[in-house]
């Protein structure tokens, strides 16, 4: 279960590449001829992706999102959790 205390890190089975302000996530499993398996992170997603370092908890990342994008902390928390759930196949999570 992903929660604010979860600490995400990039999965070793994903290759990612920054292209302008976006990131392209390429899974190292499955069939990438299926476009649906590739994932594009737009500018906000790219900002979060770069904060994922295996040390910060989602709550730390959420604070930075609220600060950077000038949004209310509860909105940032909700959006961040939704984001992490959506891209969880590209991440590993651990709890403190």
């Amino acid at each position: 279960m992903i929660s604010l205390s979860s600490i995400p890190s990039h999965s070793p089975s994903v290759v990612y590449r920054r292209i302008n302000d976006e990131y392209l996530l390429i899974p190292l499993t499955g069939n990438i001829a299926d476009m649906d398996s590739l994932y594009r992170l737009t500018e906000t997603g790219a900002f979060i992706w770069e904060l994922i370092d295996g040390e910060r908890a989602i709550s730390d990342i959420t604070s930075k999102i609220a600060e950077e994008f000038d949004v209310e902390p509860d909105v940032a928390e909700k959006d961040a959790l939704e984001f992490f759930r959506e891209i969880q196949e590209f991440l590993h999570f651990r709890e403190l």
């Binding site: 392209l24 190292l28 476009m35 590739l38």
Partner: peptide, 23 residues
Amino acid sequence: GAEAVAMILANCIQQNWNREAAA
């Protein structure tokens, strides 16, 4: 941008078990 790269990759011949080759 990323959309064009994704569209190219989806049509390439590849074996994406190899991290180095995928990158």
